[in-house]
């Protein structure tokens, strides 16, 4: 029972990270119909930035995260403006290939700057607390809370603000949005910036409890795709729920079924969904 509870907790922690990454992916897909294969690499970049700012510049953890978030938001906006906007009206194949190019580029850049080796960074919250008999590091609790807060914040932003409504409107119908006077270019840029910023938060949150390395984003991208396909491409609640569900399935499956094939869970789920529902579980929704 304790093992079970421990695994559920692990699943929730990993799930927070998955959900944040999947949220960014689904937002971009929803507004721009671009499957951003480079999304996990933005997450990797966020993790490295926080790592460097903490270990070499001596910044406080939260300050480092803030800088990483701003930096990645700029990167995201630049990607939209320079690459994906010009490809908006090109065949959909082109933006996919461009995303793959960005992915290869970012990974190679990280490899040149930081090298191949695995990096580790310490969290300022290294203590261990006991919650209902379970031992948890403080950092994991903070991660859970911070991710949840951010998700609630994002949901409020999307539903309660004008900018958020513009994003939702564009996702529902880009031409309609344009007709009612929404600057869809600006929406796309904002969405890309938000999405990259979310990836940076996820990367920064996960850096102290796992390892940082140039290809850390590849697997995460694929898992995020699995989540987004499960939850509906473009669906925000779907990405949130799907992230936690996948992580729980992985941590429980890894414990009770097979740890060797733990990473396969996501892809098998994805393949199964597509096998029976060739266009995903849900119709594309905002």
């Amino acid at each position: 029972m304790e093992l079970f509870a421990q695994q559920v907790l692990n699943g929730l922690v990993t799930g927070s990270v998955y959900s944040l990454v999947a949220l960014g992916l689904t937002l971009i897909y929803g507004t721009m119909q671009v499957p951003n294969f480079a999304h996990g690499h933005l997450y990797m970049l966020g993790a490295y930035l926080s790592y460097t700012l903490v270990t070499t510049a001596g910044l406080h953890y939260w300050a480092a995260m803030a800088v990483a978030v701003v930096a990645l938001a700029v990167v995201g906006a630049a990607l939209e403006r320079l690459i994906f906007r010009p490809l908006r009206h090109a065949p959909h194949l082109n933006s996919m290939i461009a995303a793959l190019g960005v992915m290869l580029f970012l990974e190679a850049v990280a490899q040149i700057i930081w090298g191949e080796e695995f990096r580790h960074m310490d969290s300022p919250y290294a203590g261990v607390v006991s919650v209902a008999g379970l031992l948890v590091t403080e950092h994991r609790l903070i991660l859970l809370g911070a991710a949840a807060l951010l998700m609630v914040g994002l949901l409020l932003f999307l539903t309660r603000t004008l900018a958020g409504s513009a994003i939702r409107a564009t996702a529902q119908n880009a031409e309609g949005a344009l007709l009612v006077g929404i600057d869809t270019n600006r929406v796309a840029m904002t969405t890309f910036a938000i999405s990259a910023a979310l990836a940076a938060v996820a990367g920064s949150l996960v850096a102290p409890i796992s390892l940082v390395y140039p290809s850390m984003g590849s697997l995460v991208t694929l898992k995020a795709f699995a989540i987004v396909v499960l939850g509906g491409m473009g669906s925000v609640p779907g990405a949130l729920a799907g992230g936690y569900l996948l992580a729980l399935a992985e941590s429980l499956g890894g414990t009770y079924i097979s740890a060797t094939y733990q990473d396969l869970v996501a892809f098998v789920v994805l393949a199964l969904v597509f096998t029976f529902k060739p266009s995903g579980l849900f119709k594309e929704a905002a």
Binding site: Y29, P35, F225, L270, A271, F274, P278, S279
Partner: peptide, 22 residues
């Protein structure tokens, strides 16, 4: 896989490629 179209096909085959590799 070909029953899925466009982006879905790309994502689906990416997963299949990874499964074969793993």
């Amino acid at each position: 896989c070909l029953r899925s179209k466009g982006h879905y096909f790309a994502i689906f085959t990416l997963a299949v490629g990874l499964i074969i590799h793993l």
